[in-house]
Structure formats: C-alpha cells, structure tokens
Amino acid sequence: MTLPDGRAVVEAREGDGATLSIHGAAIGDRVYTGAITFFALCVPLLLLAIAWEIGVAGWPTLHKFGFGFLTSSDWDPVKGEFGAAPAIYGTIVSSIIALVLATPLAIGVSLFLSELAPRWLRQPVGFLVDLLAAIPSVVYGLWGIFVLLPVLRDPVMPFLRDTLHLDKTGLFTGPAYGPSMLAAGIILAIMVLPYIASVSREVLLAVPRSQREAALALGATRWEAIWGAVLPYARSGIVGGVILGLGRALGETMAVTMLIGNRPEIAASLFAPGYTMASLLANEFSEASSDAHLSALMAVAFVLFVITLIVNGIARWLVWQVSRNTSGRTA
C-alpha cells in the first residue's frame, strides 16, 4: 500500500530481504533490560555499600574493643575509651517504652476502625492516624521540648512518683527534670503508633467476615468474637506491624535527641536522662575530632544498621507471610 505521493507505508514485501528485518529493536530491548536490571541492582548495591563503608570505618574500634564495645559503659572520647552499652541500653529501653504505650493504642484504634466504627467515621479517623506518620521527626522534637517536657515535669512525673507511689518500683524515682528516657519513650510511642496501626488495620480488614459471623453465630458477644476469632486470625500480622514499629523506634533520631537528655549513663529510673545510638551519632558525629572517636561512632552506626536490618527483615517476613496466607485463603 502506498501513500498518495507514492511512498510505501510499509517497506514492501517483494523480494525477501526487506520484509523480515533482523536488526534494530533487539538492541533496544537489550539496552532497556540492562538499564532496568541495573536500577534494580542499585537497591542491593546501596545496602552493600552502606554496610561496607560504615563497617570498614568502624572496624578499628570493633577490632580493638571486641565484644566489650557492646558491654562496656565507658564512653570517654578524651581518654579514648569507647563502650556503647549506655547507648544500646537507651535505644532498647526507649523503644520498649514506645511499644508498650503504642501497641495497645494502635491495636485499639485499628479494632475500632475495623469492627466498631460506622463507615463514615472510618476514613477520617484512619486518615488522622496516618497523618501522624507525615509529621517530621524534628517537629515532634520541637513539640516535645515546648509542650511535652513542661507537662511531664510538672503534673505527670510528680504524680507518678509521689501520688501513685510508683517510686517503689525503681522505675519512677529521682528528680523530675523533664528530658528523660520516659519523655523519649512517649514521643516515640506517638511516632510509631501510625506504623503499627496501619499494618494492624490492613490485617484486621483482611480477616474474612465468616470468622466473625461464625463466632457470633455460636453465641459469642461482640468482644468475644473480636478476642476469640478476629484477633487470633490477625495475630501474626499485628506482630509484624509491631516489629516494624520497633524498627522505626530503634533508628529514630531527631525527636529522641531533643528529649532524652543525652547522658551516656545507664540508670534504672525512667526519669533519668539517657542516650540512644541514634542520638549519640547526631550529637557527637560532627564534633568528633580524633580518628578513634570517629571510628567508634562509625562502629555505633554499624551496630544500629545491623540491628535495624535484622528487625526489619523479621517484620517484613512476618507481614509477607500473613499477606500470602490470607490471599491464599480468600482466593
């Protein structure tokens, strides 16, 4: 077929050379495949590069102090003594506080949204909770310094210590300065709440209706149906969400740095200031003068990297497991 001006629309099929051309597009496809494969490989390469760069820089310290780096609580850059125990302790304790406070709330709000809330309320409440995840860490820190700390200092801490007599537990003793492990834990709780809640809500909404109906049909009350049928079904997914939240809490930097008090000591009381690995890095990294100090900080970063890698790996694996199971069951 030809155009009015006589040019062929498709290279004519007479003869045999032109019709089935062999070249051209195959090269484009190879370039394209190569390009997207390269971009995909950037992800593992980036992780490897991070591990390598930080690991190599922290190696002198890890090599010199060995396992003692994790257990010693001497952190003295001037004397060249580096033990990360207070930072590791603070990271773990502040994250535990966060999870203890956030998990029941997150599960509660997710259950409310999936089981109780009228349809018109679901979207806005879910949106508000998700919104918590959009607030930058530094804004949480700002709010913590000027709103949370004064409130903790005045009514809350004395109330816990003196009115409820919780000082006997050893966790709520000492002067109520404000900046403390407790303050960091509370702000972390607010920050990880949306992560736990969104995973929980997703998992709860995936629980088949038949689960609830079967329990209700057997004469269970609404709560019993939730407790006995819905929650067990969603349990491993929720656990995945909590561990995901833990991963966030472990690495959270700015808000914690602004509220925890930044003192490298291990104290039993939650009223006492502490340190986390992330806040240690944020505070000292730009001031590190000696190579030994810098290497010690790199070692801390490496430990933090490895811990969050493991925690996130477990969380993702759990969540995947659940989504694979539920999609298999409903399909």
């Binding site: 995909a40 760069e53 991963g247 959270e252 992330a278 944020a282 933090l304 990297f305 969050t308 996130n312």
Partner: peptide, 23 residues
Amino acid sequence: VRFLSDVLNGLPSIVMGIFAWQF
C-alpha cells in the same frame, strides 16, 4: 530486590546520613 528495598525503607535515616558523609 523487593525484600531488600523494604529493608532499605526501614533503615534509620541517620545511618543514611553517615553513609553519605563517608561517601
């Protein structure tokens, strides 16, 4: 890659900062 990108997504941002500093 999918798994690792989820893991990368959960990496503490300060670690990314330190990596960029070193790099």
